[in-house]
Design a binder for these strands. Structure first.
Lengths: 219, 219
DNA sequence: AATTGATTTAATCATTTGATTAAAATTTTT
DNA sequence: AAAAATTTTAATCAAATGATTAAATCAATT
């Protein structure tokens, strides 16, 4: 029966069980607040096994962290370089990709933000490797459209801040947002689905709204 | 000399020194990653003093947390109830208040978000005590303006998500945003100052852009 | 100056926690 | 089936850490 079980149930390897448990706990509670014993228990294995497979808590964390980060950044890097799509199409794809991804991994963004704050240099290499948005096709398009008078010229900083702020922030601020707007989990998900359609519309509105001149010093 | 020093230099009390050190470290590194010994060292006092004044790490943390949270939420609660100002004025005031406040306390939002995730129930009471935005004057105004056809009707959830996302998120995502847009600290601050003017304009654009009808199931 | 109360320190405790070790159990290979 | 390699466990170690204690110092009051 044990052999049959091995073959039929196709139980995931111990290493994978540990990684899954570690991902869950690290992502939820952060490095310092996660105990190796908790990971072991969550994975249904002995504490020593964790160190047998991964040498140390830190090494295990590093692995999880990098996998998380890669996944997170891929959402943007795939679309931002595509030379065949229009500005509007790119925005739509990015927003949809992020909302879908974060609906499945709601704890990720806060985890990433914490990790980056605690260790900016380690992330640096990874970002530069995966995406250099400043040289992306999307930003070139925006610059050209701005010069051609087709949209209101925008600084890349503001554009990114708006795109990411409207798309990712609701997941980061979910608990506050829910309480403040009196919305339950189900409703929250529904709203986020709506935002797939709305955020691109709003970003377009922003890009086509003329900016009033800055008021001068005279009254 | 010791008496003169006491009077002239007006050295802050030990209790205040501990609280200041605790606020700095807790806000920067979170509860679990902060050692009571580090707080003591940062405050220039002995470890035992910390427990003498505050009984325990947890008690000290609770105090800091609540003070932080109150400060954070005040930025919105003051303006959101004002019955004399227009929608546009309220938005402008809220955005300016938050950007000014977070420029001085850049670590706060991430700290708050972490704390809320880790302990939603404790925050609940505080939120309900300080603000119930759902009954705020601002949302009433938005609802009325929507019915009167003066703006595109918006759901409070989306409005809050956009306002907060565009205003607070840049501070939370500062490290990522800076790296991705290749912006240094000084430039970042300048951009955030710009956003005091821009975000209200953009929010207005969002509120006045008609939403295209949802495409039906037919092709 | 002496007494009293508040503040501060050094030393120590007890628990938690990451990590290791040696042995047992299991699986794979011969 | 025996031997070898791999995987798993129980027990234990050492360091870190939150907390306590008893004594020393300082400040205020008499």
């Amino acid at each position: 029966m044990s052999k049959a079980k091995k073959i039929e149930e196709k139980e995931e390897s111990t290493e994978e069980k540990i990684k899954a448990a570690a991902k869950k706990l690290f992502t939820q509670k952060g490095f310092a607040a996660t105990r190796t014993r908790d990971i072991a228990e969550e994975a249904g294995i002995n504490l020593a096994l964790l160190n047998y497979y991964f040498r140390s808590k830190q090494k295990l964390y590093d692995i999880i962290m990098m996998e998380n980060f890669r996944q997170f950044i891929q959402g943007i890097s795939v679309n931002v370089y595509d030379e065949k799509t229009s500005i509007q199409e790119k925005i739509e794809k990015i927003v949809i990709a992020y909302i879908d991804f974060l609906t499945l991994n709601p704890h990720l963004p806060l985890f990433i933000l914490n990790e980056i704050k605690g260790n900016p240099s380690r992330i640096a290499a990874q970002v530069n490797e995966d995406v250099s948005p400043m040289r992306s096709h999307l930003l070139k398009q925006l610059e050209e459209a701005g010069k051609a008078g087709k949209i209101t010229p925008v600084d890349p900083f503001h554009f990114m801040a708006n795109l990411v702020g409207m798309t990712i922030f609701p997941f980061v601020g979910k608990p506050i947002l829910q309480r403040v707007t009196n919305v339950n989990d189900e409703q929250f998900s529904a709203y986020m689905q709506e935002r797939k359609r709305l955020v691109p519309i709003w970003l377009k509105a922003i890009l086509t709204t003329p900016l009033p001149p800055i008021p001068g010093p005279e009254d």
